[in-house]
């Protein structure tokens, strides 16, 4: 009994430390502070109103069709080799390659109110559209029908944090940081990229898997804020 008490006490202390220490580690912030962990599902809300900059905005209506289930990649965009997306935070530019063939190069808007993470990531799920909500006070935003969403993550940046490439219909200031961490694109560019990246679109929500790994995204540079 005398030997048992110290052993039990030590076990309890170790258990307590194991529980407390992880909670002291800074929590990674979500890209969209309200919607990030709650809702990563496809959502189409054509009657909803968007709120941005304290203004009501009519989001674009989305009418799903067979084209959204299995879109076709244009023949002139197909190259040979692995697909790879590069996002340069310094120049606010996105370049998409297949092997050495450039598929798309365009201006984007990355994180202004929260940094877009740097590193190598994989797309883990694509959604035809979803709702993104976050911020507070004057910075609060509620954006239904965000189009062509490609969520990415890696071992350091959890996929559940909601960082993504997606179309942005509420501003047109590409080439300059505007977002809360995501990579905003013109909707026509986001559509083009969405139809090209892996996993190959199968329905309105497409998850990557071992047979169809998500396209690699490399984000580098430094945002000029």
């Amino acid at each position: 009994m005398r030997k048992l008490v110290p052993i039990l006490s030590l076990t309890l202390v170790i258990f307590a430390i194991a529980k407390i220490v992880p909670s002291l580690k800074p929590q990674q912030a979500c890209a969209n502070s309200v919607s990030c962990a709650k809702n990563l599902n496809v959502q189409i809300e054509n009657d909803a109103t968007a709120i941005y900059n304290n203004q009501n905005i009519a989001p674009p209506k989305i009418y799903l069709s067979d084209k959204d289930l299995k879109p076709t990649v244009l023949a002139d965009s197909v190259g040979v080799g692995e697909k790879h997306i590069y996002v340069d935070l310094t120049t606010q530019t996105l370049s998409a390659y297949q092997g050495d063939t450039l598929y798309l190069k365009t201006l984007v808007s990355t994180g202004k109110w929260r940094e877009t993470p740097t590193g190598d990531f994989r797309i883990w799920v694509k959604l035809r559209a979803t709702r993104m909500t976050g911020g507070e006070g004057a910075d609060f935003y509620d954006l239904p029908n965000v189009p062509y969403v490609m969520f990415f993550g890696n071992s350091q940046v959890s996929p559940g944090l909601g960082f993504s490439l997606h179309g942005a219909y509420w501003h047109n200031n590409f080439g300059h940081p505007m977002s809360h961490g995501c990579v905003n694109m013109r909707p026509i560019d986001a559509e083009k990229l969405y139809n090209w990246v892996n996993p190959t679109t199968e329905g309105y929500t497409t998850y990557a898997n071992q047979q169809d790994q998500g396209t690699l995204i490399t984000i580098y540079g430094k945002t000029q804020i």
Binding site: I57, H171, N172, N173, H176
Partner: peptide, 11 residues
């Protein structure tokens, strides 16, 4: 002038 912050605001 870099672009539009929203549908009515130029930056």
């Amino acid at each position: 002038i870099t672009g539009w912050a929203d549908p009515n605001l130029l930056v």
